[in-house]
Design a protein around this nucleic acid. Structure first.
Lengths: 187, 187
DNA sequence: TAAAAGTTTGCAGCCGCTGCAAACCTGGCC
DNA sequence: GGCCAGGTTTGCAGCGGCTGCAAACTTTTA
């Protein structure tokens, strides 16, 4: 993974072949594919920082906490983990940013987490899994998290990732309508 | 596109080669690639129903309309277009559903529209393009729209796509916190 | 020290995708 | 009809991603 990221960062993803990567990592190309199903996987396919299931984590939050803060709480361990490997993730996100074709792959990776979130939200709200709300909530949470992460990686200000996610989740909680108040605040 | 969709629907995407598709469409494989950059493109890559830019459409909505309804208004033409080609889109979405690898591709397709939405929201709210809010709003709108579409394609009830999108946008407007009221409503 | 179990590698081969140049239309003009 | 200019379609050669299989190698265990 390190070799793949370094090369992709240096010369751009399309100028890096699996042969290059495996050569830099001192293994045969065949071995590369023993560990990664895809070239892209070498860039994004690290083991997800996942302990207990989303469902369990979300239900572990006291029932009187509203949904969005509960979701934030449920993923806070992941956020901390990302910040612990800050440099690694910043490199990874820079590579994603400069190779837009990877963004969908990132989305795909988030998808299994998203499926878990559907179940988790359904469990917590008591709605059926097939309902619009849990599905919508899950994709929105995923989208908000991704946006916050990209922003964290891009913005020069050394803002805390947790802060950015909390801000994004704040918008999620109160809705787009009320959370563009900068407009009126300015007057 | 029709041949590709039919074959993918019949036997699953991984069992369909470009050669199969081009054969079914009575052209050479090389010609296939003159029209589609990618095999997936033949499934999702139809011309996007896009007239004027998102920015112009959004600014065309009277200024006193709140953001979310304005966004809904701005994309209503696209929604109508999709419903006009109902059968085609239902087939397309069924294929996407049964070939999860296509979902990220769908996201990628929406991305250029999303970039436009960032600009549009920034223009309408007066915030800078680089701000968190326009970016967040754009991804959330995209995610909500996609979720509504998948639901429209899946649910047996013949609900209007416009209705579903409006419901999803409603959640977006009022926030996740307040829009799972089913919970309290039941009591 | 030898067998068992696991890892790495080479090889052959399919498929997606591309650049290039030849073949083939098509419509307009003498 | 014959010819030319434009565009479209095709074949071909070739790269790179990816896979199944079986041989070579390494490590563990008894």
């Amino acid at each position: 993974m390190a070799a793949a990221l370094r090369l992709a960062d240096e010369r751009g993803l399309e100028n890096v072949t699996v042969e290059n990567i495996s050569e830099a990592a001192d293994v045969s190309p065949r071995t590369f594919f023993n560990y990664f199903a895809t070239k892209d996987d070498a860039l994004l396919g690290g083991p997800l920082p996942h302990g207990p299931s989303m469902r369990d984590r979300l239900l572990a939050v006291p029932a009187d906490v509203p949904l969005v803060p509960a979701l934030l709480e449920a993923i806070s361990a992941d956020i901390a983990e990302i910040q612990r490997e800050r440099d690694f993730w910043l490199l990874r996100l820079r590579v994603i940013r400069s190779n837009p074709s990877l963004l969908p792959v990132l989305v795909a990776r988030g998808e299994c987490a998203e499926q878990e979130t559907v179940v988790a939200v359904a469990a917590r709200t008591g709605l059926p899994t097939g309902d619009l709300f849990p599905q919508l909530a899950a994709t929105l949470v995923g989208a908000a998290f991704r946006t916050a992460m990209m922003r964290w990686a891009t913005a020069g200000d050394g803002r805390d990732l947790y802060d950015l996610v909390r801000e994004a989740f704040g918008v999620l909680a109160t809705g787009l309508a009320t959370s563009a108040p900068t407009h009126e605040d300015i007057r």
